[in-house]
Nucleic acid binder design. Structure first.
Length: 302
DNA sequence: AACCGGATCAACCGCGGGATT
DNA sequence: GAATCCCGCGGTTGATCCGGT
């Protein structure tokens, strides 16, 4: 009964990924797609568990990842979504193409939480804290950092103590504790408008909702800016006995041999890569060798 | 220069839910 | 229906970075 046993973890590598491992995983996924994470490490020749590979791909190697810090608009949007969804990071991340749940979660815990506290807002309920509760809630959050416990503290205090805190609307607490069940419900809450306005602590907040194409266009710019082809090519030339033709061909099987022979200099190659006809998000294809090389380069830049 | 503490973030862990046998 | 697996999620950890002393 049941299925085949899961992979045992004996002899599997852990810890930070090497560039070689990244390249192996990326090459495998871009060429074969993902059918079963459990099989990926075996087929890709990696001494990792499938879970680790999945995480690495989703949080780091995925080609459509948006790099860089969060903008204020994004932060405000995260706050807004968190007030409605709670700590459902994957649901929140779904509204930010190119951002991962891990990234958003980290950003929330390290920055936004503090920002809200500075504004006198409870990061859990998103409601203003008076002095007494600011002290209590902060202590609970700092000591336990546990949303459920904080919620219990807050609600029990509310029922047992006649505090001076502004009365919290039943719905908002309920929303924090029991977020919307699915995206459909959320869509009802978040209008499909380009610009959205809401209110935090009496201050109007404005968020501009980007569509997926906008994000891809930004990614295009970012990738172009990040890719320092000349530097990379110089390094590669040193590593490969100064044979640029071989490099151009080996790292871009999507270019014909004739094309790569015409790329006489690193800068010319860079220009050719960035040219719309070759490097375009519109034509992005997981099985396209050029992109897999580009994104490998991109990630090795960090 | 060395040390320290806080901030950041990649990676891991454990769990729950749905799928599979 | 039970047992087991796989995947995805959220919480947590630990390595690294960085600024202050």
């Amino acid at each position: 009964m049941g299925r085949q046993p899961c992979c045992d973890k004996v002899g599997l590598k852990r810890g930070p990924w090497t560039i070689e491992e990244d390249h192996k995983l990326m090459n495998f996924i871009l060429n074969n797609g993902i059918h079963c994470w459990r099989m990926v490490p075996k087929l890709a020749g990696l001494l990792r568990c499938g879970k680790s590979c999945r995480l690495r791909w989703i949080n780091y190697l995925r080609p459509d990842l948006k790099r860089g810090g969060f903008t204020e608009v994004e932060e405000n949007q995260i706050i807004q979504l968190h007030s409605r969804l709670g700590n459902r990071w994957s649901k929140i991340a779904a509204h930010f193409p190119g951002r991962t749940d891990n990234e958003i979660k980290n950003h929330w815990n390290t920055r936004i939480k503090k920002r809200l506290k500075l504004l006198g807002l409870d990061p859990v309920t998103h409601q203003p804290m008076n002095d007494q509760h600011k002290e209590n809630d902060t202590k609970v959050v700092e000591d336990q950092d546990d949303q459920q416990k904080t919620l219990e503290t807050t609600t029990s205090a509310e029922s047992s103590v006649d505090d001076h805190r502004p009365k919290v609307e039943e719905n908002s607490l309920e929303k924090a504790a029991k977020p919307a069940d699915d995206d459909d419900q959320l869509r009802e809450l978040v209008p499909e408008t380009k610009e959205e306005r809401w209110n935090i602590n009496g201050v109007e907040q404005v968020s501009t909702e980007m569509n997926y194409n906008d994000v891809l266009n930004i990614n295009y710019e970012t990738v172009c800016q990040k890719l320092d082809f000349s530097t990379w090519m110089e390094q590669e030339m040193n590593n490969n006995n100064n044979n640029s033709n071989n490099i151009a061909y080996s790292y871009s099987s999507s270019l014909s041999l004739e094309e790569s022979n015409n790329l006489s200099s690193p800068s010319l190659l860079a220009d050719t890569y960035v040219d719309d006809s070759i490097f375009s998000w519109e034509g992005f294809n997981y099985h396209h060798h050029l992109e897999q090389d580009l994104f490998f380069f991109q990630n090795t830049q960090r």
